[in-house]
């Protein structure tokens, strides 16, 4: 029995965000420290960074861990930390030790 499909091959708008596969590829993730440069949200390829109440906010479900935000944040307010924390435990995050 053939699947029930729309007549014209079409997809529901915005539906990829419901099950973002890219977050499973992540080797590192950004940690927002004291980032105040709102512009970094415009450099995110995945719409994972947004501005909420005047501050940069991160949705890790959408983040592929590319590190562009950390590279671009002018005040060094975003740091990339490894997803795999190793047998020794969590690598210390700068400023959070």
């Amino acid at each position: 029995m053939a699947k029930n499909l729309p007549i014209v091959p079409t997809a529901k708008p915005g539906s990829m965000a419901e099950t973002p596969a890219g977050s499973t590829w992540r080797e590192k993730r950004p940690v927002l420290m004291n980032c105040t440069c709102l512009e970094v949200t415009l450099y995110c390829p995945d719409g994972a960074l947004s501005i909420v109440e005047g501050k940069v906010s991160l949705d890790l479900n959408l983040c592929k861990g590319c590190g562009i935000c950390a590279n671009e944040c002018k005040d060094g307010g975003i740091q990339m930390v490894p997803e795999y924390t190793g047998a020794q435990g969590v690598f210390p995050v700068k400023g959070e030790e």
């Binding site: 499909l5 079409t10 708008p13």
Partner: peptide
């Protein structure tokens, strides 16, 4: 009524679309 048209289609769906087209 926005939709994405002609997205990349996997082996799970392509053949069914073709079946419908032939129908």
């Amino acid at each position: 009524n926005p939709q994405g048209v002609n997205t990349v289609t996997s082996p799970d769906f392509y053949m069914d679309y073709k079946f419908r087209q032939n129908e």
